[in-house]
Design a protein around this nucleic acid. Structure first.
Length: 498
RNA sequence: GGCGACAUGGCCAAGUGGUAAGGCAAGGGAUUGCAAAUCCCUGAUUCCCCGGUUCGAAUCCGGGUGUCGCCUCCA
């Protein structure tokens, strides 16, 4: 039985109860990438947010059908292809492969369908044909335009009024400046397809109407995308789809906020302030990126800085270390009885662990409040650490922290965080951070061995000198009762992402 | 010019009518050979400003200010 949840609907500008068309099923369509270059961490936010959302819905027993498209026919792709002397669809296909590499590296689940414009030309023709037949579109010099004034509800998503728009000085046979192209007449040297209106290619907006309805029916449960797509893209999708099908296009519109740079500007290729996903992931685990995104409300602007990932990595380590401490605890027996014997720190962990699921679901069911859900995880982590200081915790605390371990598993299943073995996490961090700092593991190990020898001989001066040297280059040394451990400092002085 | 969103401690941030989660940073303490990690303590009499509604508002309403996004491609 799928759990109910509430979600902010851009259409109504309010949080609403989610009501599916078919009980237990959710059809979700998310606007994907225009593939002519590598994707950056701003794109990654959108991808991670919707990945986490889909994971969560499935975790809550929803039967989710997830569709995310590729725009592989587009002005920018054609321009780039011409620059490189490459076939546009081929170039796009190449960047689709790159995108998949990035998404796999980010640990995302693949959508159920990833339609490409170039493979849905017939579906696009069908929609355009309907619009022409119904008088919502007209042909002018081989281009098919959508007549926005034929759609009374135009502007209902974005609140825009056709007469108040800054009209672009666009020429080209439009009857109204706000009209937009459904089918663009082929120009010499451009990729084109035959159509009932002559050779050409699809306009930008029509693809989503065609591909969304192809896989999910005339009405989508949820349509997602970046906040910057609300107008004109999503507004136009509504106009096309609803005029063609006579049915509401999407019941819920979900928009993720944009990544902003220092000074508040959004990250964008045209602004030259982008950090590509592969660059960020070369230095930090994908999970740190995920935590950084999910700490924040998906709808809010999210400030990016060079400190973002180091800080997120530090937070992630804190959670993993708490989980490790809990996993190391043994013993068996009745948790309540043991908690009574061991006192308040024990009963606190037990209680927080047991309450976690309700808090976790409560936060996420209310407009996907990932920040609140993660906050609860940190409270639990502190309680675990506090309990781990208890002298008998390691030997007998197992039953006490069992609910906490279950809580951490929820984080993995519901949001894709904290799902790996702790050792694997630390190993990845070590490799990536050593590389980012330009350090060699063998050299580090050598110095540590020398330092251990000095410590064994109680040569504190030598030992501390070696540690100072290591720390100067970014290695943090921890002398634990069970032996020496070391970590690579998160913050890199010469970090490429700073 | 039009449309929309947001404004919470040094920074990030949850909370949408009942009296401020969480993270980072900072200071003090415990622990440690010294550190690191961890734990404990300290910090907004207050949630941009001004009015209003209410027994009671960060949370609702009105006005103002500021920031950002969109109106051209954009996650």
């Amino acid at each position: 039985m799928a759990a109910s949840f509430r979600i902010y609907n851009t259409l109504s500008r309010s949080v609403e109860d989610f009501v599916p068309q078919v009980p237990g099923k959710v059809g979700i369509y998310v606007c994907g990438m225009t593939v002519y270059d590598r994707s950056h961490v701003g794109h990654a936010r959108a991808m991670v947010v919707f990945d986490a959302f889909v994971r969560y819905l499935r975790h809550r027993s929803w039967d989710v059908l997830f569709v995310r498209n590729f725009t592989d026919v587009d002005d920018k792709i054609i321009r780039r292809a011409n620059e490189l002397g490459e076939d546009p669809v081929g170039l796009a296909s190449r960047f689709i492969d790159v995108f998949h590499e990035d998404m796999d590296a980010l640990g995302l689940v693949r959508p159920d369908h990833e339609p490409r414009v170039s493979r849905c030309i017939d579906d696009i023709h069908d929609v355009i044909g309907k619009l022409v037949d119904k008088g919502h579109a007209y042909v002018s010099e081989g281009t098919v335009w959508y007549a926005v004034r034929t759609f009374d509800e135009y502007g209902k998503l974005s609140g825009q009024n056709i007469d108040e728009l800054r009209s672009p000085d666009e020429a080209g046979g439009k009857r109204d400046p706000a009209d937009f192209a459904l089918w663009k007449c082929a120009r010499p040297g451009e990729v084109s397809w035959e159509s009932p209106w002559g050779p050409g290619r699809p306009g930008w907006h029509i693809e989503c109407s065609a591909m969304g309805c192809k896989h999910l029916g005339a009405t989508l449960d949820i349509h997602g995308g970046g906040l910057d797509l609300v107008f004109p893209h999503h507004e136009n999708e509504i106009a096309q789809s609803e005029a063609a099908n006579g049915a509401q296009f999407a019941n819920y519109w979900m928009h993720n906020g944009l990544l902003t740079m220092a000074g508040g500007q959004k990250m964008g290729k045209s602004l030259g302030n982008v950090i590509n996903i592969d660059v960020a992931l070369a230095e930090f685990p994908a999970e740190a990126l995920r935590l950084y995104y999910l700490q924040n409300k998906y709808r809010s602007p999210l400030p990016w800085s060079g400190d973002a990932l180091p800080e997120a990595l530090g937070m992630l380590s804190r959670l993993y270390d708490a989980r490790e401490a809990a996993e190391a605890m043994g013993g068996e027996g009745d948790a309540d009885r043991i908690a009574k014997e061991m006192g308040k720190t024990a009963s606190d962990v037990l209680r927080l662990g047991r309450d976690f699921e309700a808090r976790f679901h409560g936060a996420l069911d209310e407009d996907f409040n990932t920040g609140g859900a993660i906050g609860a995880a940190f409270e639990l982590a502190r309680a675990v650490n506090r309990f781990a200081d208890h002298k008998k915790a390691r030997k007998r605390g197992g039953p006490i922290v069992a609910p906490a371990l279950g809580a951490f598993a929820l984080l993995a299943d519901g949001l894709g965080l904290l799902g790996r073995p702790v050792s694997e996490f630390h190993a990845e961090v070590k490799v990536k951070r050593l590389k980012a700092l330009g350090l060699d593991e063998a050299a580090v190990e050598g110095m540590l061995a020398e330092r251990s020898a000095a410590r064994a001989a109680k040569d504190w001066a030598r030992s501390d000198a070696l540690r100072d040297e290591l720390e100067g280059s970014g290695i943090i040394v921890m002398d634990k009762p069970e032996g020496v451990q070391w970590r690579v400092r998160c913050v890199a002085p010469d970090s490429a992402t700073a």
